[in-house]
Design a protein around this nucleic acid. Structure first.
Length: 217
DNA sequence: AGCACGATTGCCT
DNA sequence: GGCAATCGTGCTT
């Protein structure tokens, strides 16, 4: 503990037990929780609003399908409550929350967050690529897996980190929704055959009170 | 060594 | 709606 440093807090970090659920349950349970990152002293936080479950070795859409294991996806085999971060298309990162027990490679992709704290920092990070902040960008700061990672400064250095640490963590800010959650098919996994049809994407609906609350921030 | 491709995004027509 | 960007990984030569 370093003395004298006043750190913004948002709520109680989720317990290890919270993450021992399977990815399907965890994908729903994560909605409404707060994802927080601290990068170079800058704090950003977002309400998790869109998730997808990846159900391990039997799920053709999962990076661990068939027991596949490599340096890239090794963190999927960690116990629940760790970050699995990978690069996609050579230019974006996606962040997942590992689920279940050690050596059961299930994970939940965070597909979207509602900016809750540090919104201007998120906007500036998203604009850094072109140097221009268009009105369109400012209303779509973190509504995609690649976008939220850029907005919250999440990259491969976050891979395998526990989600109750200092660099990146998830906590309960008392905003957990109890209804208005939609289930639908996961996106961009056509290669997964019949598994592409499973309704394993979960999102807070437009009518969710939480969304209206966040929009008013 | 070579090459196809991806749990995406943004810009173009 | 189409498509290029861009690179680590994994599979083929």
């Amino acid at each position: 503990m370093s003395g004298g440093c006043k750190m913004r807090t948002f709520g109680k970090k989720m317990s290890t037990e919270f993450y021992t659920a399977d990815a399907l349950c965890l994908a729903k349970a994560l909605l409404g929780k707060l994802l927080v990152t601290v990068h170079e002293g800058e704090v950003t936080a977002g309400i998790i609003a869109d998730t997808e479950a990846y159900m391990g070795t039997t799920d053709r859409a999962c990076h661990a399908f068939g027991g596949h294991r490599s340096a890239k996806n090794e963190s999927m085999y960690l116990p629940g409550g760790h970050a699995y971060v990978y690069m996609i298309y050579g230019m974006y990162y996606c962040v997942n929350v590992t689920a279940n027990e050690k050596n059961i490679p299930e994970a939940v992709l965070i597909r979207g967050i509602l900016p809750f704290y540090g919104r201007e920092i998120m906007v500036s990070r998203r604009a850094s690529r072109t140097g221009v902040v268009s009105p369109h960008v400012s209303s779509h700061i973190a509504d995609g897996p690649g976008k939220l990672c850029r907005a919250m400064a999440i990259d491969r250095s976050c891979d395998a980190l526990r989600l109750d640490g200092e660099r990146i963590y998830i906590c309960d800010a008392g905003l957990t929704p109890t209804e208005e959650v939609t289930a639908s098919e996961r996106l961009n996994i056509d290669y997964a055959g019949e598994d592409a049809l499973r309704p394993w994407r979960f999102a807070l609906s437009q009518k969710d009170p939480l969304r209206r609350y966040a929009a008013a921030q």
